[in-house]
Amino acid sequence: MAATEENSFKRLQEEQENQHASPPPEIENNIMGSMRVAHFMGNIVELYLPRVFDLILALFGSKKEEEEKKTEEEIDTKNSDSDNAPEGNAISDELSDLD
């Protein structure tokens, strides 16, 4: 208190605080409201963002898997075709028979 008495700046501050009292309650409501919204958004981001990443990864991953499956199938069909094709020796044998 003694310090306040000695300092006119402090007394002025006290006087102004008493004069203007506190800001209207709407301000507090607005601040607390926007805080709650920000907190809620933060929670949503915290909760769902990793899942969104997982989803994106899964989407890209599944595309890759599909592509891989396709290429594997193509290789398989090629291999099966080559299994059915007559071998080189068989043809030469047939030719030698004709001779």
């Binding site: 501050q13 605080e17 203007h20 009292a21 506190s22 800001p23 507090e28 601040i31 907190h39």
Partner: peptide
């Protein structure tokens, strides 16, 4: 947010009077 509200109660008048 209740903790923030305590800070608001402590400083709102001071900040408001400074702004005025």
């Amino acid at each position: 947010s209740d903790y923030f509200q305590i800070l608001y109660k402590r400083y709102s008048s001071k900040i408001y009077s400074k702004c005025i």
